[in-house]
């Protein structure tokens, strides 16, 4: 059953990610991108990480893809003409494919945690799972801990440094995006609610001779 689901999700994600590139209508390609996200969330469910799967759907499908759709629908491109040959890009494809491949290679075989932390992490596992406390209480551990509890336990203890770093990076990028797009125009009439609320009879009516 698990194998069947894996092949289902992986084949559909490959088909739809090809459709993202190939389809002429940009809205169709965003639609297939959403379906790719869904199938990848299915992978997470197979791996037993339901929380990550749901988070993936909330963030990527519920927020990121909607913004893509907004931008694409507001732009006035109905159809991109595909009359030029795609083979022109094959060299670039190989270069970028090579870079991505090695990126993933290094990520999978080396992570960003320092050796000391990793040692602590391992020693935590050894100490915890071989302790008397755990052996006598493993039943309650299995019963009362779920995906989220274990996930947050590790994030806030042993992986807190990458967690904080990534949150700071996200904050900086958010502020950067806002400051890039924010330009106040002075010739627009604005509504200041606090001014309206603070208006009283005495400071709005002036007797002029």
């Amino acid at each position: 059953m698990i194998n069947l689901l894996f092949y289902f999700f992986s084949s559909f994600s490959i088909v739809f990610s090809l459709a993202v590139i190939v389809s002429k209508n940009p809205v169709h390609s965003v639609l297939s991108l959403i379906l790719v996200f869904f199938n990848v969330a299915g992978f997470f469910v197979i791996l037993g990480a339901e929380f990550l799967a749901l988070l993936f759907i909330v963030v990527y499908v519920g927020a990121v893809a909607v913004l893509f759709l907004f931008v694409i629908m507001m732009l006035d491109i109905k159809f991109v003409s595909l009359n030029f040959s795609m083979y022109r890009y094959i060299l670039i494809f190989f270069v970028f494919g090579f870079i991505f491949f090695f990126n993933f290679f290094f990520i999978f075989f080396d992570d960003l945690i320092s050796i000391k932390t990793r040692y602590n992490f391992l020693s935590f596992f050894v100490n915890y799972f071989l302790s008397v406390d755990f052996i006598s209480n493993w039943c309650s551990f299995v019963m009362f801990s779920n995906n989220l509890i274990i996930f947050s336990y590790f994030i806030y203890t042993y992986y807190f440094f990458p967690f904080v770093i990534s949150s700071i990076i996200l904050l900086i990028s958010m502020i950067g995006a806002i400051s890039l797009t924010l330009h106040r125009r002075n010739d627009v009439k604005r509504q200041f609610i606090y001014k309206q609320i603070n208006r009283t009879f005495s400071n709005s009516i002036v007797w002029k001779n």
Partner: peptide, 24 residues
């Protein structure tokens, strides 16, 4: 579900799609 709240949040965040696609 143990993650019932997140499930409902995730699924109801998809409700946008029916609306935006119908409009487009």
């Amino acid at each position: 579900l143990n993650l019932g709240v997140v499930y409902i949040f995730a699924i109801s965040s998809l409700g946008v799609y029916g609306i935006i696609f119908s409009g487009w």
